[in-house]
Simulated assay, not measured.
Amino acid sequence: MDEGTYNIDIVGFHGTSLESAQKIITEQNFTSGDIRNDHWLGQGAYFFREDPEQAKIWAKSKIKGSETAVIKTIVSLDNNSFLNLDTRSGLNYFNRYIKTEVKRKILEEKAEIELTTDDHSKIKHIYRCFFCNELPTNIKAIQRTFFVQSTLNEDETFKKMDVFVQGVQVCIRDLSVIDFTKTGINNVINMHTFRRRKKTKQKRKL
């Protein structure tokens, strides 16, 4: 991306079931999950950057009936292997690649983006997932910040400042950039404790 070469270290947090977390640590391997056409940043292992709380909340919202855990890891790579879609240079690279390499592939191979829904809110994920999956293999990680639904967004002071909860997602496409010697369980969330805390917050709100 013509910016000179420098190293990037990312502290990532991955929410999952406790059983899966223990398996990841033991086997030193993250699975990329189900192959879908609507992943937010394409196929890969997902982490919240420097945000263990968001990883915890995500895990509890997606995994029902079992204890969950948050894994902490260090991702180390150079900037030429990292596509940061929160930056102007990253978006410029993405735009050029789509309009040249991906367009050429679509024309030559007659590839099509398969839309499996009429839901416009989901269609954008399908498009983004398709183009991220078409990136070259030297792009080992992709980052993008997304808006997150939260009661904090209803705070009047935050609204006046235009401050909202956001989650910085990092999709790891090449697991070789994960340092498994610095990977471990950051915390375990007991579902009963989580429910009690949630009820307490709701009572305070009332």
Rank of each mutant, 00 (worst) to 15 (best):
I142H: 05
E112Y: 11
M1A: 01
E53D: 00
K110Q: 12
I172A: 02
Y6S: 07
D34V: 05
T100H: 02
I24V: 02
E134R: 15
N133C: 03
A69V: 11
A21H: 08
N29F: 03
R144Q: 13
T68M: 06
K56Q: 10
D9R: 15
I189F: 01
E134W: 13
R195V: 05
K160G: 08
D78A: 07
G33K: 06
K124D: 06
K110C: 04
L77R: 12
N84C: 11
G65H: 11
L115H: 13
I10N: 09
E154A: 05
I74E: 10
N7P: 05
Q169F: 01
N92L: 13
I57K: 12
V168F: 04
D162S: 11
L18N: 06
I189M: 12
C132S: 05
D155G: 04
E67T: 12
S20E: 10
K124S: 07
I142V: 13
V70K: 09
T181C: 05
L85A: 01
V102Q: 12
L41M: 10
S17E: 00
F194Q: 14
P52K: 14
E108N: 14
E101S: 11
P136T: 09
D51T: 02
Q169R: 13
K201A: 07
A45H: 06
F94V: 07
C129W: 10
R197V: 04
I142C: 05
T87K: 14
F47L: 01
K201P: 03
G65N: 10
W58Y: 12
S17V: 00
Y97I: 09
Q166V: 06
T31Y: 09
I178P: 02
L115Q: 07
S150N: 03
A141E: 01
W58R: 09
E67F: 00
N190C: 10
V102I: 15
G184Q: 15
F158R: 15
G90C: 06
F47K: 02
E27F: 04
I25K: 00
E19S: 01
K56M: 02
H39E: 03
K122L: 00
S66N: 15
K160F: 05
C132V: 11
E50V: 03
F30W: 04
S76D: 06
T26R: 15
V102M: 11
C132G: 02
D38S: 06
S89V: 15
P136C: 07
K203C: 07
K64P: 01
S32H: 15
G90S: 02
K110E: 13
V165P: 06
N37L: 04
